[in-house]
Amino acid sequence: MISHYFRLARILCLIVAVLSPLFFQHESLAAIGEDAEKPVPEFIHTGKTITAKLIPRAKSTSILIDFNTAQGSLSDVKGVEYETLRTPDMDIKEFKSSFFDVTIDDIPPGSEAEITISSSFFTVSTEYWLYNSKKPAKWFNSGIKTKTGTDNSNQFVIRVMDGGEWDSDGMADGRIQLIGGPKDYFWSYALGTLVVRFFGVFVVLSMLMIGMLSAGQIFVALEKRQKRLALLSSQPTKPEPAHQTEPLNSPNTPSSAPDADTVAAIAMALHLHLAHRTSHNTVDAQKTDQNSWVQYGRVGIQNARLQTFKRPVNTNDKL
């Protein structure tokens, strides 16, 4: 027991010892904090709509986010580097898409514009956070809930006043600049999906189990049936009706049927006994007035005897 633990510890120590110098590679320290999944949006202009195409964090496939406005003209949408707007209290993993800088021109100064941001990637729990460098808390929740759009995507409809606190340029100049990004709480997503997916593995294997149990029962039933049929086919022909009253006449019920050797022995014993009572002559193998049990037994015994005579000459082969 002790040697077992010692062996395990020795191997672990060996691996740790070999890999421990990796701790002291100063360039390695960057690896943990590096943003390996930074989304890089590309923008496509289609009529009045600007669409951002990007691979968000924790995804392998790209998503689309549409930006639109009913007032003025949507002059530009840009992706913003996380690091430029990052504050110490924010976790970049919660901003899975990107930060966006949306600019709307040609609106009357001081008026309001409605910006629609929609994507099938947004969920009901997604929030849209906004950035304003002039506010004490630079990042804040817009408090706007998602709505289901016409194409079943979820959309934020954000009303921004030119020169208001959500307008990042802070001036009523006929231009609105909205900086922000969609936010999903990382840990609630990570833990939620964890539970669902672990449960999912159980569901999948349970379904497979049910399928296999059902298939197994069908196969077992089929095999039993086949065995029963095989057993029946190996039984002697059904005795004649005249002898059906005899006690041994129940070979058709497999559960009570004796095996062939037993039947042969009983049949032979009965035959010898009856033959002795009626005649002292030798038994006639061709005699047909015996019942089928007797014949079956005699044939079996004779066949066994015949094997002796069929044995190859001058050999010691056992039969």
Partner: peptide, 19 residues
């Protein structure tokens, strides 16, 4: 596995460490 499909559930339970 076919003879005792119930053991599939053990295979699922053993994924606990993965999660």
């Amino acid at each position: 596995l076919i003879a005792n499909p119930k053991t599939l559930i053990i295979g699922a339970g053993a994924q606990l460490g993965v999660f």
